[in-house]
Design a protein around this nucleic acid. Sequence first.
DNA 1: TTGTACGCGTTATCAT
DNA 2: ATGATAACGCGTACAA
Lengths: 344, 344
Amino acid sequence: MAATQTLPRTARAQDVAEAAGVSTATVSRAFNTPAKVAPAVRDRVFAAAAILGWLPHAAGSALARRRTSIAGVVIPTLGQEVFATQVEAMQAAFAEHDITLLIGCSNYDPDQAAQQVRTMLARGVDALAVLGQIPQAGLFEVVQARRVPFVITYGSAPGSTHPCVGFDNATAFSEITRYLLALGHQIFGMILPPTLHNERIVARLAGVRSALADEGLGLRPQHIFEGEYGILAGRKALRQILGANGPRPTAIICGNDLLAIGALFEARTMGLVVPRDLSITGFDDISMAGEIDPALTTMKVNNVEIGRLAVEYLVSQLCGEAAPSEVLILPALVERSTTAPPPK
Amino acid sequence: MAATQTLPRTARAQDVAEAAGVSTATVSRAFNTPAKVAPAVRDRVFAAAAILGWLPHAAGSALARRRTSIAGVVIPTLGQEVFATQVEAMQAAFAEHDITLLIGCSNYDPDQAAQQVRTMLARGVDALAVLGQIPQAGLFEVVQARRVPFVITYGSAPGSTHPCVGFDNATAFSEITRYLLALGHQIFGMILPPTLHNERIVARLAGVRSALADEGLGLRPQHIFEGEYGILAGRKALRQILGANGPRPTAIICGNDLLAIGALFEARTMGLVVPRDLSITGFDDISMAGEIDPALTTMKVNNVEIGRLAVEYLVSQLCGEAAPSEVLILPALVERSTTAPPPK
DNA sequence: TTGTACGCGTTATCAT
DNA sequence: ATGATAACGCGTACAA
């Protein structure tokens, strides 16, 4: 007894076409340009497809269309709210154009980032966003060779040759510094996350220095703490800075909100009242910043907007439209309750 | 003067083959099974590919291989550390198998989640993970029809028919309740995020109730606050619960760490000393939990492990191996400094 | 070890 | 409005 059982292959357009008594061309049209198919036929096709559980096969479709409807984004980590927010905004914005988002994390490692970019190209992404900076010399050329629209987000190296959507880190930190100067502060401390492979952090330090220099002031080496990330690092940093010899800073500028929150906690532990005894500023305006007590003075970076604008740029490139290759947003000072004039 | 300029098409395997003086089969082999190609030839192929900037075209490759090397994950949002962490772990684990990850956010909306799943199937994902629960009746069947390995993560409906990797929410919350009972607490409050479309939250409440019932105790309605998310919600909830008529709870069980942190902040504002006057517990063990002061007693959910195990399951399915269709991890109580025996 | 030739599933072009 | 047919680019038996 020969087993003539057809091993149930997954349905193709051909199968749907046969079931509906039409050609594969009509099946394709019914799904892609329904208006061009007679309603009765269309319904037959849909019914057949539903029964067979058929959906257009992505690879076949991509091959014929020369488009995958997949975009890629490479970020350092999803563990930071600012990056996660941006990715989520991108995903939503791309979805409006029926584009799905591939993600890759580099863990702040340029080599991993470059590898992720290559992998995404191999997956046939239609467009590509990289957070921060181009990870490797020559990589941009590879992307260009494949004619894949490309954009750098979040960071912005002014004068960079690559299309970018972001903000100017130096300017933003100059602004927050000038705000503290206007309050009357003269002695500053600064707490920074690791600067390794991170131009943005370097720019933040430069922004502070430049604003201070305009007033003939500077940042004492013992008042700079650099190299760790998170609340505990903020605590440790504040202890170290306030424990240093010489005059004590009255204002602490932190490279991000988490460090600032750590500094804030430590100030309380040390018996200092913020902002009476010490002013502290953050950066990013993460969701916690406004919810702790005292609420953190910081700068809001609209990451949703960055994500949206990046997608807008990529989509316009995809459509062959011209678009400005550098889009800058302006972080806005959010004055809350951790800043005040220095103590007398 | 006829312009015979060839508009530069992007390179195919054919072009590389010609440039290297071999057949396309050899080009393919050089990239996929290098061992089967003579070293000299291989180098010629690689050189030609490098010059032309060629990479295998994803769609063609996927069509021939019947595999896209792309997996998908659908989560409520990237804005919550627990979900972002899990996604990041999945991305890393998939990368080891040369699989790239597509993400979709549902914003806690079952319809959006279902749509994301459909989109991913249309993109030809090789495997699919959905965080929480299956969003729609009938959707699982669609996935099965396409023979796409599938797993539910994070949540676990015991007795569910779908493969899942997660933990038992009810059991976990029973455990934390028993811990507080053992410390001597008798009157409990509970603060919960929105339960709408979220079985996991419902299970947490049930877990607490069940552990209390074992001791003949219960949760008074005025001691349950439900429906908002975040630090501010935690503050508001504590105010409301402690302001209610009747006996005051000595322990507050929170549905997650952020609510617990809010409650902790509010307790301080109200002049209460935690844990002397009031015990508070969280859930998840987000990075902040151990960094605030007093450090939060909570339960650690190893989301990295969940992500890893989910990928392991999916990959084994992809390889046609058998694998247990329900994998449970055990959240672990992390006893820190927000819990103590109740005041006399 | 290498080449030939076919199939993968869809869409676009061109006829009808 | 619909059908026939030719790409689309790669991987892989099979043959040499």
